[in-house]
Nucleic acid binder design. Sequence first.
DNA 1: TTGAATTTTCAGAAATTACTGAAAATTCAA
DNA 2: TTGAATTTTCAGTAATTTCTGAAAATTCAA
Lengths: 188, 188
Amino acid sequence: MKLSTKIETFVAHFGEMGSRWGFNRTVGQMYALLMIYSRPLNADEISEMLSISRSNVSMGLKELQSWRLLKLTHYPGDRKEYYKTPDDIIEVARIVLEERHKREVAPTLTMLRDEIMREPVSEEGKYAQQRMTEIYELIDTVSKAVDELAALSPNDLRKMMKMGSSVASLFAFKDKLVGGKRDKAEEY
Amino acid sequence: MKLSTKIETFVAHFGEMGSRWGFNRTVGQMYALLMIYSRPLNADEISEMLSISRSNVSMGLKELQSWRLLKLTHYPGDRKEYYKTPDDIIEVARIVLEERHKREVAPTLTMLRDEIMREPVSEEGKYAQQRMTEIYELIDTVSKAVDELAALSPNDLRKMMKMGSSVASLFAFKDKLVGGKRDKAEEY
DNA sequence: TTGAATTTTCAGAAATTACTGAAAATTCAA
DNA sequence: TTGAATTTTCAGTAATTTCTGAAAATTCAA
């Protein structure tokens, strides 16, 4: 089962980049393949297409499922499980944001809150506490904004994309979503 | 040179999380330490405080410098170099965003553009091309929005933070920055 | 039930990444 | 200049992560 050059390039690239999203290379490749292949694939097909062992595919699928990033399908008369990604790419982005928030940002905020609460014992501790407060506020602010974006429906997000991407436009759109009114909407 | 508990917890946590930001554990620890320590530190001090070899510190500092994340200081009569982070934590966030965009997002967009251009030879390639176009548009949109945010001055961003963090508020703020006017500013 | 088909687990091997000590290179005061 | 102080480099080692094959577990049609 030979992959087209287009797919091979895409898969290889996301394999390399995958680690930045919290996966290893093969898991990145697997997801990339599922994302651009026109039909759901079973584990054996993935194993063959990417030349990785069946057991590695099994572990990779398990990890991707723990990220809620896969959809399962079955075909009549075939006991194998077939995997695909959500049809809507925006849905994928939303899930990744949510999961990363849960896995990385939330624990960091908890740690910072705990340490900021604890009475500092030294001058050093006092300074550290101040700095942690600044860091807490920054992360909290940004993550709340991201939460809100992630909470918008894929459909709303798509409308936003069509409007253009400037921060100003994004905001203008949000206004419409929440029913706000503005003087100079035509500027955007 | 014993670290306070507060600093130790913070350093350990960012060591673990560091890999998500593109660094390894020790580089994450080093930056965490420099971020919350009240004064600039030299390489020997970092080495001792974190119990890592002097050469490892040297390599870590080099990497952090390639990310433009360090400021250098000197003290009269002392030949050692002293390192600290930008005073403003928002400046740190802005630089990380810019560097990650340059190192990860830009190459991905280039790859996608190239592959989308290339005429597909198979049905599979045709479908892949479609999907890549969707992905390209999403990444491009989001990254343009992030670029704009990163381009705002730390001072403007701080004002934004003080206003609160809802998307709506962010937009309202951007309006003020760009001189726009709105009916119901008092709602935010 | 049974057993063939399928998926999962996991111990060990392979590959990759991080770290160290020693040596080389650089810097700068005298 | 010289040489002591300091920083960087890098080959080898250590630690970690990823991957595999074999075996165990699960599923389900007959």
